[in-house]
């Protein structure tokens, strides 16, 4: 049995070293394919997720940045959040809750919060909340890079609107998250 146990522990340690956990996204995203060869960085990255329904979520990789981003956005919109609520927000890898609901959302308990339907950050011209979130994220970390993690089935109109918002606050360089295309002819 010993060789088997040795191997099991070897594999355990290997997986423990190499693992990076899947981000807990509130929406299922199937990203489109491309031939791009650039690896997405792990650190200093702000991910704008667009799901197939067109809901928009924002996520930062760093917990402290998330807290700072929330503070900026709350301050801009005169929303009072307790320190518990801010703490809770900093534990969520991404958020797509409109500001009108965020105070209520952050009082929910574990399972209730998971089941809560996040309707996405509003991006319309009249109610452009994404802009504030992006400014907040940038203030929290000046080295931040932006990535758009869009579902292949998302409407181009929504994606274009997100591009326009990014352009509006002078973020002119960003990444589109894609999956490597498997070329059938090569194999």
């Amino acid at each position: 049995m010993n060789p088997m146990v040795d191997m099991a522990f070897l594999l355990v340690s290997f997986f423990m070293m190499t693992t990076t956990f899947k981000a807990d996204l509130p929406a299922e995203i199937s990203i489109p394919f491309s031939k791009a060869q650039l690896k997405l960085p792990d650190k200093n990255i702000c991910t704008i997720t667009i799901d197939a329904e067109g809901r928009v979520f924002i996520g930062l990789d760093n917990k402290f940045d998330r807290k700072q981003m929330l503070q900026y956005v709350a301050q801009q919109n005169a929303i009072n959040l307790s320190s518990d609520q801010a703490e809770l927000f900093s534990l969520l890898s991404s958020s797509g809750v409109p500001l009108e609901e965020i105070s209520h959302f952050l009082t929910l308990e574990g399972d209730e919060r998971k089941a809560y339907y996040q309707s996405g950050i509003p991006i319309s011209k009249e109610n452009n909340q994404l802009r504030n979130w992006l400014i907040g994220s940038r203030l929290s970390n000046p080295n931040l890079r932006f990535a758009i993690n869009g579902d292949g089935d998302a409407s181009v109109a929504i994606v274009k609107r997100v591009f326009d918002i990014l352009q509006d606050i002078n973020i002119t360089r960003f990444n589109l998250v894609t999956d490597t295309e498997i070329d059938a002819s090569e194999s």
Binding site: L38, K39, L40, Q167, T172, F174, N175, V177, T178
Partner: peptide, 9 residues
């Protein structure tokens, strides 16, 4: 790991 496509606007 997902790949990233760089885009400049």
């Amino acid at each position: 790991k997902p790949q990233a496509m760089e885009l400049m606007i």
